[in-house]
């Protein structure tokens, strides 16, 4: 398997785009023509070769450029990566999980050689060759969580489990849908989800927490979440909202297919062996509406979902002001025909 890593940007000139192969494997999040919150968890098992569900940590054509973007975000704002003092062991757990998975599942891209605690990690796409001592922080250039998540797509929330709750006590968050790690670090599951409308009243978080507290080692889970983003911005943080918020004004019927993106999060949940922490990777996939409508089923369905979405959700997801334009543009791709069940293209 070879991946042609694209050289592209998620800022300034926004040269990000998906190849036809990447469009085909996009994790379209709607299994029917409407959307409402649900816990929608399933086992994170390898499924559908070639899809984003095939491997433990999906690596795609955007990998190298996404890691360059992460390094830029961290250089501008080091508070995007934080770990409370008791979370270091969980960081080592996470490093092990990622290195072992990637070396096994992408042997042509990553290698891990272990001799007791003497480890040798080779990351070919990023040109990294690192010898270090497992569990000895002094032998890595960053803490273990920061080290490995600078080399892994997606945000990472590392959750401590105590008092029948999950506590956001560490994280690497540079590609987020408008929430702040620096503000939320140390909060419990209900507190960091506090701003989400409706879902508390629906009992979603009580059920989700119950599920997550019981995730066992070796039996990870996953779900999809989504929002809409103008321009292919990975960093839609509250910290920089005063810079990217204004871009929402630039959307027109003419540039809709190029500028408007469906943003999908593949959220996975893994129990970590030594710390008993839960790691919650939040992997962001972007697709231009112009790319998305090349799959007729997806164009039809997205039109119906966005048109019928409750106003509160469109407001929370931040596209209420642009919704009329988006729906009008998508309506050209909805001929009213029925759509097949499930998320996959026809």
């Amino acid at each position: 398997m070879t991946i042609n890593f694209r050289d592209e940007t998620f800022r300034d000139d926004f040269t990000f785009r998906n190849s036809p192969e990447a469009i085909k494997r996009f994790p379209f999040p709607f299994h029917e023509d409407s959307y409402m919150y649900s816990v929608n968890m399933e086992p994170h098992k390898s499924y559908r070769p070639g899809s984003v569900y095939e491997r433990t940590f999906d690596v795609d054509e955007h990998y190298v450029s996404e890691m360059k973007d992460r390094a830029k975000v961290l250089a501008e704002d080091p508070l995007r990566c934080q770990s409370l003092p008791h979370m270091t062991l969980a960081g080592w757990d996470l490093l092990e999980l990622i290195m072992v998975s990637k070396a096994e599942e992408y042997p042509d891209l990553f290698e891990l050689h272990r001799d007791g605690n003497k480890w040798h990690w080779i990351n070919k796409p990023l040109g990294i060759d690192q010898k270090f001592v497992f569990l000895d922080e002094a032998t890595l250039p960053y803490g273990p969580m920061e080290y490995i998540t600078r080399q892994t797509q997606g945000d990472f929330a590392v959750l401590d489990q105590r008092d029948d709750n999950l506590w956001m006590d560490a994280g690497m968050v540079t590609t987020q849908a408008d929430w702040s790690l620096d503000f939320d670090i140390g909060m419990n599951f209900f507190e960091w989800h506090a701003p989400v409308p409706k879902a508390h009243e629906m009992g979603i978080f009580v059920r989700a927490l119950k599920f997550l507290l019981n995730v066992r080692q070796g039996a990870p889970a996953r779900r999809l979440n989504w929002t809409m983003t103008v321009n292919p911005l990975l960093d839609t943080s509250p910290e920089n909202y005063h810079k990217w918020g204004v871009m929402k004004q630039d959307l027109t019927m003419e540039n809709m297919g190029e500028k408007m993106h469906l943003r999908v999060e593949l959220q996975t949940f893994f129990r970590l062996p030594r710390s008993n922490a839960l790691v919650f990777p939040i992997r962001c996939y972007l697709i231009k509406l112009g790319e998305l409508v090349t799959e007729p089923k997806w164009g039809r369905r997205l039109h119906r979902v966005l048109r019928d979405l409750p106003e509160e959700l469109a407001t929370y997801k931040g596209f209420i002001s642009n919704r009329p334009k988006i729906v009008e543009w998508l309506s050209k791709y909805d001929d009213g025909k029925p759509t097949s069940p499930g998320i996959w293209p026809d």
Binding site: F183, M187, A194, H242, G245, K248
Partner: peptide, 22 residues
Amino acid sequence: VRDHYSRRIAAFQGVRVDAEEP
């Protein structure tokens, strides 16, 4: 002024009100 509150910062969160229309 948001109601979102951080014990670690001991403060509520303030977000630019005119971010989308400076």
